[in-house]
Simulated scan of single mutants.
Amino acid sequence: MRCQPRYDGQVYIWLNNNQTCLLCNETADSSSPICTACETELPWLGDHCQTCALPLPAAGLTCGHCLQQPPAFEHVVAPWTYSFPIDSLITRFKHSAKWPLGRLLAELLAQYLQHRFETDLQRPDALIPVPLAHRRLRQRGFNQAAMLAHWLSACVDIPCDERLLLRTQDTDAQQALNADARRKNLRHAFALTPGAVVKGRHLALVDDVLTTGATAQALARLLMDAGAVRVDIYCLARTPKPGDAI
C-alpha cells in the first residue's frame, strides 16, 4: 500500500548545496536557487515614496496621496516593482501552486528585510499575514500571504501570528477594481479574532503585492484602532500608478 502519491519528476530539495537557478536553469553559484546574474537583473525598486513605496522619480520623497491622506500604516517595505519576471514568479506561485518560487521570493525578501533591520528599519513584534477570502482559499487550497509570512518568520526570527485577523466577508476579487471600488469592496471585510492581543504592539502585515494599498489601509486602520503602536507592510512587489513607466 502506497502512502504517498507516485511522482516521477525531480524532487525540489531546498537545502541541496548544488542548486539550479529557478529562472535560467543554469547552475547557481550559492546555496540559494537563483544565480547572481538573475538576482541582479530582478526589477529592484528604486526611488520611491517613503510611506507607501510608490515608485517616484527621486529619492527621499513622499507621494501626494500619502501627504494629503496619511495612511494608518507607517511604512511599506518591498524589494521589487511588479514587473517581469517578478510578476510572472508571483503569479505562478499564487495561481499555479509553484511553491519553490514562493519560497525563493520569501528568502530574498528576508535577506532584504534583514539588511533594513540592520540599518534603518525597526523590527516588529510579529508578522501578520493578510487573510484570504474563504471562497478563494477553498479554490486555491492555500493562502500565499500566510506561506510567505511563515517562511519569513523562520528566516528573520520574528513570530508569525496567523490567527490575529479574520476575513469576515468574501469580497469580490480586487484585481479588476479601481482604488475607490477597492476601498468600498473592503468595508467590514476584516475583523480581529476574539481575544486578539494588539494593544501596544508593533505589527507587520505580510502580502504578495501592494497595488492601491486599500487592503493594507483597511487592516492597518483596524489594528491601530485596536491599540497597535505601529503597523508596517512587508510585500514582495509594489505596482506603479496606472500608466506610469516602471
Rank of each mutant, 00 (worst) to 15 (best):
H75C: 07
V206D: 12
Q217F: 04
L56M: 12
L205I: 14
L56A: 03
G60D: 04
A218H: 10
H95F: 15
Q4S: 11
W80T: 14
A226D: 04
C3G: 05
C21D: 01
F73Q: 00
Y234V: 02
L219A: 03
A59I: 00
V130S: 08
A106P: 02
K98M: 09
P129D: 08
L45N: 03
H202P: 06
N17H: 07
D125I: 06
T62S: 06
P5G: 10
C155A: 15
Q139Y: 03
C52T: 02
L89F: 11
E118K: 06
C235P: 08
L186M: 15
Q174D: 03
E41K: 15
H75G: 00
W44P: 05
Q4F: 14
L15W: 11
R163V: 04
G141W: 04
T119S: 12
G141I: 02
A220Y: 06
G200T: 11
C155F: 14
I246F: 07
C38Q: 05
P79W: 07
F73C: 02
S96N: 14
R140F: 06
I90P: 07
E41P: 00
V231S: 05
F117K: 03
D120E: 15
T81M: 13
M147Q: 12
D208R: 12
A106E: 02
A179H: 11
H202T: 15
D8N: 00
C155R: 15
A218E: 09
L152Y: 04
V231L: 06
H134P: 06
Q10M: 14
L105S: 09
R221I: 00
S31A: 07
Y234T: 03
F190M: 11
A149F: 11
T168D: 03
T211N: 07
P129W: 12
A245K: 13
G64M: 05
L210K: 12
T239N: 00
A149C: 13
L164P: 02
G243I: 08
Q50N: 10
H150C: 01
C63L: 02
C155K: 15
G200Y: 11
S96R: 15
S153N: 06
I233W: 08
R136Q: 13
G46N: 01
L205Y: 13
R238W: 04
M1E: 13
C21S: 04
A106M: 04
Y234C: 02
T215I: 12
F84K: 12
R136C: 03
